[in-house]
Write a protein that binds this DNA or RNA. Structure first.
Lengths: 335, 335
DNA sequence: CCCACTTATACTCAAATTGAGCACATGAGG
DNA sequence: CCTCATGTGCTCAATTTGAGTATAAGTGGG
């Protein structure tokens, strides 16, 4: 057994994980696969010869294997199965991170191949229901309820997370550890007047993970958390990958014009603002947002008027594709 | 043959490529391995059962295989072989990109495993000569002579590259193509008053590649370029990986305090400035640089005085490790 | 028809940041 | 003591940013 390749060093299989994002009704949505035991087996093919442990039967990111004989590049592998399965044309693909941690996937181990998975972020337009089976669009704030500040400070944060973090800080074993925990919590969760930073999504998730405040880090020994404040869990390390994607996207929109990948061909400035707000989880100052957009010259007036605004009719704009070519400092900054 | 793993889908082997950077005498250096046929075989082990074609026997980035049975994570795999081989302690490691292109490595193909390689950027301090065999520190501007603007516009750019690009633009087959080429060249190479952007290292390299102005893209049919303006070539796609690393690092220093990973424990502000300048390839305004650094509070005066400055003695500073924890907008902006 | 309500859009203004420079300090070396 | 090279404090105008005021132009209800 184990012939071919570098046998004595173990087998490696490459998987492609996609965070597919669309904005639907002003909410940032991500495509997730509902894992029932049957669909899991059907989807994962060779990777699923061993079943997932019961606890990990959760929602998962869509996953596709990489076939080196069939796919010329990793990205083309990703594109082909995503477009095939979702019937959505992908406008934008960005590689996020490659995860190779042992123990990521409980199916590996004695005899099983090591799964190295490459995470991708893909942006698609809202083009109605997907054809993909068992896959649905979920609001990403279901998984990260503390990340949505559009209606003010999330209640979950004030009521549950911050107090739990303070308990965690107080429970340190040395003074150094307490200070370190406090410092981290300040920076990531904006404790005690420290400003909140929308990009630290991964850092926040990891802190909660370490503090045992999310489902994924529960070892079964400590008593389970109340459901209401840990956010919906996902299979394996998928919530981590999603956190990476959100943080990256929030950062990227500030200096590259990627928002437009999520927009319909024409849109009003308020619609554009709502999309940015949905992604960043914050509210923006309307007049300044417009000033910024116009200054960048990313957008041009189509002359058409949208009158279903609920107020004064608005001009419809179009993204100027000409400026798309790698150009920097063209994003949409906040406030 | 081809038993184990997912046989019908081809074998995959994972390689780890490291761009190891240090600043030595105000120059940004990268660790490269000199490939003679013998050392190549010794280094690459299982990956080198087929020899490289003669043209690809160039300088290469250090490369280590990933052993799934031995390494718990990709990063720990990288750290272990880099530290083992270089005797340098790595302060900072960042994953760059995962390359899976077919045809990247001519050794793959019929029967050979597909090599997927994960590129890493590692920053080390200048701690004298390395112990690694056949590896030497090379100024990265040998590979990208057009990227060093510290002594004004690089002559190579004005004398050779820009004219060659104009020829390439003029040689377009349609009007659209000409406009597209011109636009790209403007943005990346700062043609006709467009400002130069230090971060577009990869974009510039790719443009030159497409325009057939670097060695790696020479197909052997067109007549060879004069040596003087294409920069030193590297094996396989290593120059591409290096370009990715430089661009990433140039971007990163602007918003994260990573420069300090390259600094000795104490340093003067001018030394710090010289390091930033070496990385970004530009000159900075001294007084404003100081103002910026002091405002960020990244640094503290040790009270000690450096008198080997050639002028008035300077205060020695130390990086305040306390602020290292994920904190944003703390980099060193230019000018 | 007027009114409340909603959204669009033009413009103002102070605070903060940035880019460029002057002036002087302080050491080394002739 | 004069020159040279660097360090360090400070000024100043231009630009950008954050926050707000004022007004325009639609909707639907009485």
């Amino acid at each position: 057994m184990n012939v071919g390749g570098a046998p004595e060093n173990g087998q490696v299989v490459i998987g492609l994980n996609a965070v597919i994002v669309a904005i639907i009704e002003e909410q940032p949505k991500v495509l997730v696969v509902q894992h029932t035991p049957e669909t899991l087996t059907a989807q994962h093919e060779t990777l699923t010869d061993r079943a997932l442990p019961h606890d990990d039967r959760h929602e998962a990111l869509p996953f596709g294997p990489f076939y080196p004989l069939k796919h010329r590049t990793l990205e083309s592998g990703l594109r082909s199965w995503v477009e095939e399965q979702t019937n959505h044309e992908i406008g934008y693909v960005e590689q996020l991170y490659t995860f190779g941690n042992a123990g990521r996937d409980p199916r590996e181990g004695a005899g099983g191949p090591r799964v190295v998975s490459v995470g991708y972020l893909a942006l698609v337009q809202d083009t109605g229901p997907t054809a993909i089976e068992n896959a649905i669009w979920h609001n990403w704030y279901h998984y990260f309820p503390w990340e949505d500040w559009r209606d003010g400070t999330p209640r979950i944060l004030e009521k549950n997370i911050i107090p739990a973090l303070r308990t965690w800080i107080a429970g340190s074993e040395t003074r150094e550890q307490r200070e370190e925990r406090y410092e981290r919590a300040c920076i990531t969760f904006g404790l005690d007047e420290t400003p909140w930073s929308d990009e630290l999504v991964l850092e926040r998730y990891e802190l909660l993970y370490e503090a045992n405040l999310v489902k994924e880090s529960q070892d079964g020994k400590s008593k389970p958390l109340p459901v209401d404040y840990r956010g919906t869990p996902m299979a394996l390390d998928h919530r981590r990958i999603l956190a990476t994607a959100i943080g990256r996207l929030r950062g990227k929109i500030k200096y590259r014009p990627v928002v437009f990948e999520l927009m319909p061909p024409t849109f009003t400035l308020l619609q554009l603002q709502r999309v940015v707000e949905a992604l960043s989880g914050t509210r923006l100052h309307k007049q300044n947002f417009r000033r910024l957009i116009e200054k960048k010259g990313l957008v041009e007036d189509t002359g058409k008027i949208e009158s279903q605004t609920g107020g004064r009719p608005a001009s419809q704009f179009r993204f100027r594709r000409e400026v798309l070519m790698e150009r920097q400092a063209l994003g949409v900054r906040h406030n």
